[in-house]
């Protein structure tokens, strides 16, 4: 439904987007993540036809954004960041205007406007001046206008920006409802929101895609170091350092550290460790449990920790930022 092939965009010397490709089929909800300046908004602007790519192509529901721009744009509902609207208009007047731009006939437009306003729970404000509405309501008017013409593709940039927790929950459930029969691309800084709403996550750093997959795939992806929590008790005379030294000899263990949060009964000799496995070291629970038993440690908990999407995001950003530094260092050494 959305097909992006090797798009790039530069502004002067700044290469904002570099060879980005992605394919989003019908019914998929994808989240686009990235730090500030990663090129997310530029990518979205190229997908929606606001900006033409320097190289590459974008196709929406089979219509090429370069050569069949009007047809392609008809397939898109777009909510830009901070939902820019005309403050002097009413939500109903605004939707009427948008519907005319999308070529809806009068009767269909009236029906669609009412449906969109009701779905976004902004019907009660339909005849008030947009400038007098709260940020949350304005955001919902923007969302109502994006879905007015029932587009097969919805692109939302920070859709829950400015909403209160109740409204965020409602918007999330609306997005899930909308996603059943259309393609959605959501750009957000709020990682738990992406994790809960999207079935695919695309991480952009420095104009390139650095991670792409389901949240589970990214969290437990190849190369992702496994982490374990181990709680044990040992002879008070031996101390926790005895356990640490023995467990660190287990093959595949990269590092062991005392957890910041120690058990409540630490005074009775219980210690909680955080153990990080080497990348691709597999499941170390059996080896760790065996090693602990061999040296007489009493283990009451051994858990493999699931990384959060936030940790994955941070590691991808760090990795991407280290790569150019290493390249620069190598370049300097060769020079």
């Amino acid at each position: 439904m959305i097909l992006v092939r090797e798009i790039s965009k530069s502004f002067g010397r700044v290469r904002a987007v570099r060879g980005v490709s992605l394919e989003l089929p019908t019914g998929q909800v994808a989240g686009l993540l990235g730090p500030n300046g990663a090129g997310k908004t530029t990518t979205i602007r190229m997908i929606t036809g606001v900006l033409p790519p320097d190289t590459g192509s974008v196709s929406i529901a089979g219509a090429d954004m370069g050569s069949q721009s009007i047809r392609a744009r008809r397939q898109i509902g777009y909510l830009p960041e901070s939902a820019p609207l005309y403050p002097e208009m009413t939500p109903l007047g605004y939707l009427d205007y948008r519907g005319k731009l999308f070529g809806l006939d009068r009767r269909a437009l009236r029906r669609a406007a009412q449906k969109s306003l009701d779905r976004c729970r902004v019907g009660a404000m339909a005849r008030r001046r947009i400038g007098a509405l709260s940020k949350g309501y304005r955001q919902r008017v923007g969302l109502a206008s994006a879905m007015l013409h029932d587009p097969p593709v919805l692109i939302l940039d920070e859709p829950t920006n400015g909403l209160d927790p109740g409204q965020i929950r409602e918007t999330r459930s609306l997005m899930r409802e909308l996603a059943q029969d259309r393609t959605m691309l959501i750009c957000s800084h709020i990682l738990p929101e992406i994790e809960r709403t999207c079935d695919r996550v695309i991480v952009m750093v420095a104009g390139q895609i650095r991670g792409d997959g389901t949240p589970d795939e990214l969290i437990s992806g190849p190369g992702a170091p496994a982490r374990y929590t181990l709680e044990f008790r040992t002879n008070p005379s031996a101390g926790a350092s005895f356990g640490v030294s023995r467990l660190s000899t287990v093959a595949g263990v990269a590092s062991i550290a005392l957890d910041d949060r120690q058990p409540d009964d630490a005074s009775k000799g219980w210690t909680r460790l955080l153990i990080e496995g080497e990348p691709a070291s597999g499941d170390l629970r059996e080896a760790l449990g065996g090693a602990a038993a061999d040296v007489g440690l009493f283990v009451r908990e051994l858990t493999r920790r699931r990384r959060s999407l936030e940790e994955v995001f941070v590691s991808l950003v760090d990795e991407a930022q280290q790569t150019p530094n290493e390249q620069a260092l190598r370049g300097g050494a060769q020079a």
Partner: peptide, 14 residues
Amino acid sequence: RSGTIEVLRTAPVS
């Protein structure tokens, strides 16, 4: 100034 041009440009209008 207001950014509404971005919304206008994503509509099927030249």
